[in-house]
Design a protein around this nucleic acid. Sequence first.
DNA 1: AACGCGGGGGT
DNA 2: ACCCCAGCGTT
Length: 368
Amino acid sequence: MDCKYNFIYESHKATAEFFIFASMIDYDFSLKLIKWYSENKRDLPWRETKSPYKIWISEIILQQTKVDQGLPYYLKFVKKFPNVHDLAKANENIVLKLWQGLGYYSRARNLHYSSKYISESLNGEFPKNYVELIKLKGVGKYTASAIASFAFNEKKAVLDGNVFRVLSRYFGIEDPIDTTRGVKIFENIAFENLPKKNINTYNQSVMEFGALQCRPINPLCNSCPLTSNCWALNNNKTVSLPIKSKKIIKKERFFNFLVLKSEKFIFLEKRIKNDIWKNMYQFPLFEEPIESFSPPEELIKGSILSRKIEVTHLLTHQKLNVVFWEYEKKKLFLNKKYEKIEIKNLNKYAVPKIVENYINQNLSNHRL
DNA sequence: AACGCGGGGGT
DNA sequence: ACCCCAGCGTT
């Protein structure tokens, strides 16, 4: 069969709403993937449990994050917070501290927020189906489908980056994966091709297959069990699929961190605005071009500039030009804008990676 | 519908 | 330099 779908039925209702139906079913697709999975899957701890709590933790950690990067964080989390009540009782800074270095910190904030909701409003009773799961903050379509199918055997198709790639290549879907219209097409095909049974195993299979075999770059088509019906392979399009319509633009910013310290104390501030690293801590920040920056006189009065360390920090959407201005002072007075803390307690505060790096490289002699 | 949100790793 | 990753919430 030729898996390229050649026609899409489109219809307009009187409301002018736009509906898209695309039909393309291959009954061997899921069976072959499940077989491939049984022979090639990795041993991962969240596959050994039916605990919706632990599966939830793993799914949040793995959002936009590769298994290798997320695995140590998962192990730390379930050890520190064995159940939802332990997580709910924790202070947010503790949760963020455990998340430190993993990025997308709203995941940690929402995880903590939702744990309190489950612990307090639901009496610890974890939501048991898709409709209830998706009400949790931080749980969208993908994560609700994953938990519902993995923990409760609900018939839901997961649709993540891996699945988009596998479906687009195998079925030859050239609609973009990042538009509402494209997503609907993929949702339909994903659901149509669910197997009759073993939904949870199939969902694991298609994602694992995307991660290990049908990789974004240099997919392993030579050893692939799906080549006979793969549209992309047979039409020489594996390189260009899936298709994304948007491209990212990188903004440049200039951060001046004022590392104002005495022998024992240092100033910190909490990031509270809706920006990167919300609710995490940093040294007093002055965001302006390096050339024009000079620290407020009242802050550095009676101190000397001991070091000036320049670093660039790349995020997905931003290029940060960072300077740590290190000022030494005999005595640090209280300041209403900043928290005066002991340097040896710095490691209790959740900080962005760039600040963590600075601390490790320059303040580690303070026995953190 | 468009945008913002981290950090790491691969090519 | 650019892409991708078990996506989601906000506007």
